[in-house]
Simulated assay, not measured.
Amino acid sequence: MEETIAAAEDSQIAGQIPQQRGDSPQETAVRYAEERHWDVVPGTWLEAVRGVPRCSCGEASCSAPGAHPARPDWATQATGSATVVRRLWQKQPTAAVLLPTGRTFDALSVPETAGFLALARLERMSLTLGPVALSPDRRMQFFVLPGGSAKVPELVRNSGWVPASLDLVALGEGAYVAAPPTRFGGRGAVQWARRPTPANRWLPDVEELISALAYACGRDR
């Protein structure tokens, strides 16, 4: 029975990702602050070096080129003021749009394959999802109520899994997610697998998602 359900879910994994709006990083960051009341902060950006996009941090081996904090005090620089957001992005219009976690939301980061599998299962269960981001490094971030990240290890164990055996990362205070339209080097842009809408303004609790996410990550090992 479990194999039949898994096969049905696998058939949904190849669903189309919604097309992104063509707004600039500044316009999008302002919208996140105004419409979602999310704090935002500009990150690094891409610079062309001999025709090759390189991260503004200057590290040739940067693991997230153009998509990570640009300064050590980035958390204190984050703001929900649309006026301040406009001013910050005027300094560097192509800077990454970063959303600090642990404030208005936490996030659960899983491999892309596991993420799509979990999405299929959660939709079959008719659970209400919050926004879900898909990054070019082939990971998905599920937004949940703040404070949920601290509960993850115990919830995973209660679901019958060993936390260290799963590629499931809880992002809370002190962490961040890169949001659309942030670009990762030459790998493409962050997209919304489930975009923010009025219907998902109220985020799910981590307990509602953890079983499906842990199962999907277990299958993806």
Rank of each mutant, 00 (worst) to 15 (best):
E3T: 13
A8W: 02
E9R: 13
E9L: 14
Q19K: 12
Q20T: 12
E27D: 12
T28W: 07
A29S: 10
R31H: 15
Y32F: 12
E34N: 14
E34C: 11
H37R: 15
P42M: 03
R50H: 11
R50I: 00
E59G: 09
E59I: 02
E59Y: 06
E59D: 15
A60P: 00
S61F: 01
A64D: 09
H68G: 01
P69V: 09
D73G: 13
A75N: 03
T76C: 04
A78L: 10
A82E: 12
T83H: 07
R86H: 11
R86Q: 14
R87W: 01
R87N: 09
L88W: 03
L88M: 14
Q90F: 00
Q90D: 13
K91V: 08
Q92D: 03
A96G: 06
G102V: 05
F116Q: 08
R121L: 12
L122M: 12
M125N: 08
M125S: 12
M125F: 05
M125P: 02
P131Q: 05
L134K: 07
S135Y: 00
R139N: 09
F143A: 15
N158R: 12
V162D: 11
G172C: 09
V177I: 15
G188D: 05
V190W: 03
Q191W: 00
A193G: 01
A193V: 01
N200A: 04
R201L: 11
R201C: 11
L203M: 11
P204N: 07
P204E: 04
D205H: 11
E207F: 02
I210P: 00
S211C: 08
L213K: 10
L213P: 02
Y215M: 13
C217A: 15
C217N: 11
G218E: 03
R219D: 05
